[in-house]
Amino acid sequence: MIRSLWTAATGMKAQQLNIDTISNNLSNVNTSGFKKSRVGFQDLMYQSLREAGTPNNQGSQVPTGIEVGHGVRPAATQKLFSQGSFQKTGNPLDIAIEGDGFFQVLQPDGRVAYTRDGSLKRDNNGRLVTSDGYPVQPEITIPEDAVNVTVTVEGNVLVKQPGSEELNEIGQLELARFSNPAGLKSLGRNLFMKTPASGEPTVGVPAENGFGTLSQGYLEQSNVKVVEEMVNMIAAQRAYEVNSKAIRASDEMLQQANNLKR
């Protein structure tokens, strides 16, 4: 009887993590470039009370055994890197990636991080940076007198300057991709860090060798679908409730056993 109490408790703990993950997805529904997470579960070890194939008194073998499980545990929280929808902003420094790839940014500690958030800005030196001031890699500096900035689908950054009728190329945006993007470590602030599970990044030019293209004046929205998350939340809530009822039923059965002496 005690086994059922602990088994149901593992289910409640697992569903609590599920609700936590769903809540994080919903809270970032308007975060540019955000990728939702999904919890995967595994059943725990089993106690074998009788092995299948055990000989019986008649000399034959029992066709099935008796196994009792010990509950569930979370196995992984996986990031899903499906494409989010695009929002037109008209801002020339808002750039969406359509397809595979991440922007590269340099953190203050010198390490490179990766992001799908293309809401870029200009700092006081004219460099293209993220909202936190992290410069895009390779570094691109927009001249102070630039009157127009154009980013092509291939990542070429062009500017028009006073006195010139032609667009001058000042840099090239590059993208990075991974063999296993689900293995990236989430840092917050729309940033990811490579890990041994993600593999080393492959860097290339947009629209070439399988890399995505760039769309100027657009932002990639979160890939969270509110209706799906609400349905998942209801299912997790009901699973939590069912496990709590299993604990209550086990408690009542223990109470009945304790009252047998009366």
Rank of each mutant, 00 (worst) to 15 (best):
D145P: 01
N156P: 01
I140T: 07
G155N: 08
D109S: 07
A146G: 10
K121C: 01
L167W: 08
T152P: 08
D132W: 01
R122I: 03
E98D: 14
Q104N: 13
R122F: 02
D109T: 02
G101K: 03
L158P: 00
E139K: 04
V157H: 15
R111W: 07
V151I: 15
E154R: 07
D94W: 03
E165C: 05
E174G: 11
Q78W: 01
N190I: 00
T195S: 15
P108L: 11
N124A: 15
N156M: 05
L80V: 05
G101C: 12
P196H: 09
F178Q: 14
T141W: 10
L106N: 11
I97H: 10
Q172I: 00
P143C: 13
N91G: 10
F192R: 06
S119F: 00
Q172S: 06
P92I: 00
I95F: 13
L191S: 11
D132E: 09
R116W: 02
E169N: 15
D132H: 05
V112C: 10
N190Q: 13
N124E: 13
D100I: 01
G155E: 06
E166K: 04
Y134M: 06
G183W: 01
I97F: 10
L106M: 11
S198F: 05
V129G: 15
D132N: 10
P135H: 07
V149H: 14
R122A: 08
L158I: 03
L93F: 08
A113T: 01
F86N: 12
L191V: 00
D123V: 01
G101R: 07
S131W: 00
R111N: 14
E166A: 14
K79C: 09
I95A: 15
Y134N: 09
D132Y: 02
D145T: 01
T152W: 11
Q161C: 05
Q104P: 12
S164W: 05
Y114L: 11
A113Q: 05
S198A: 10
S186N: 10
Q172D: 11
V136Y: 09
S82Q: 08
L173Q: 09
E166G: 05
G171W: 02
P143L: 14
P138W: 06
P135M: 09
Y114C: 12
G133C: 09
G133P: 03
E166N: 07
L173K: 06
S85M: 04
A176D: 10
L80C: 12
L158G: 06
A113G: 14
P181T: 03
Y114V: 02
I97G: 14
Q161T: 02
F102L: 06
P92E: 15
K160S: 14
K160H: 10
N156G: 07
I170N: 12
P138M: 06
T150F: 14
A197R: 04
T115N: 15
N148D: 12
L106Y: 08
F86S: 08
D123Q: 05
L80H: 09
G90A: 11
R127G: 06
P162W: 07
V149L: 12
G188S: 11
G188D: 09
Q172V: 01
D117S: 12
T150Y: 15
R116Q: 10
D109Y: 08
